Simulated scan of single mutants.
Amino acid sequence: MARVIDAERPGLRLPARQEGDRVLYQNRLFEAQWWTQNQVPTSSPWLAWAEIGATIRCSTEATARTWTDSGIYLTGQTAVHDGIRWTAQWWTRNQEPGDKNGPWVKTDTCNG
């Protein structure tokens, strides 16, 4: 994993970032999904940056990250959304948990 840089440092110009590089911006962590340059990290699911949600402890055995619309989730990965922990049934991005026809299946509750 690449080092995390603070993208809000005064005078910082975002240099070219490689896939996998991480940037801290507005107290949120983003990871580059492909090569990018001078693109401010946002939670848009259509850009190079994917927001990595905060880690929440659901129980003594389970943790998960909060769901973000720009996050990329692989089969079997979990995310917390509206107090529920969900498991992705297939690769997904920008598909909110809770849609009965979507990629997510309810795992259990998680109120952090």
Rank of each mutant, 00 (worst) to 15 (best):
W46Q: 15
P41G: 14
R17P: 00
A48N: 08
W86I: 12
W34H: 05
W35H: 14
T78F: 03
P45M: 05
W49T: 09
A50M: 09
P45H: 11
T87M: 13
Y73D: 01
W86E: 07
H81W: 13
P15T: 14
Y73R: 02
W91N: 07
S44R: 10
P10D: 13
H81K: 12
Y25I: 11
T75S: 02
T87E: 12
Q37T: 10
T68E: 13
S44E: 05
V40A: 02
P45E: 06
T55A: 09
A50C: 15
G71F: 05
W91D: 06
I84V: 15
A62H: 03
D21M: 09
I56T: 08
A88L: 14
A54S: 06
R85S: 05
Y73H: 07
R85H: 06
T60W: 09
T87L: 08
E61S: 13
Q37R: 15
L47H: 03
Q18L: 14
A88F: 06
P15F: 09
V80D: 01
L12F: 15
Q37K: 15
Q26R: 15
R57K: 14
P45W: 04
G20Y: 02
I72P: 02
Q37W: 08
Q39L: 12
F30A: 03
L29I: 04
S59A: 13
W91G: 06
H81Y: 15
T68H: 04
R85M: 11
A50E: 04
S70A: 09
W90N: 03
E61A: 14
Q77N: 08
G20T: 04
A54Q: 14
W67V: 06
R17D: 03
Y25F: 15
R57G: 01
N27Q: 14
I72F: 08
R13Q: 10
Y73T: 09
R9L: 11
G11F: 07
P15N: 12
I72W: 00
D82N: 15
V23D: 00
T63P: 01
A79D: 04
R28D: 07
F30I: 03
G53R: 05
P10T: 07
G53F: 09
A54C: 02
S43P: 04
D82Y: 08
T78C: 05
Y73M: 06
W67T: 13
R85F: 00
Q26C: 10
Q89L: 08
W34I: 01
R22Y: 01
A62V: 13
A64F: 14
S43L: 07
A62W: 10
P10Q: 06
Q26E: 14
A16N: 12
R57C: 05
D69K: 15
P45G: 10
G76P: 10
S70V: 07
P15M: 14
T75G: 03
A88C: 14
S70Q: 10
W91Q: 07
Q77F: 00
T42G: 08
D82P: 02
W67Y: 15
E51V: 05
I72A: 01
Q39F: 09
W35M: 13
S44H: 03
A62Q: 13
A48G: 10
I52S: 02
A54I: 10
V40L: 06
N38L: 11
L29C: 04
G76W: 03
V80K: 03
A79C: 14
A62S: 12
W90Y: 15
I84N: 08
W86R: 13
W67P: 07
H81V: 02
E19P: 09
I56F: 12
A54N: 04
I56L: 13
Q26F: 07
L14R: 07
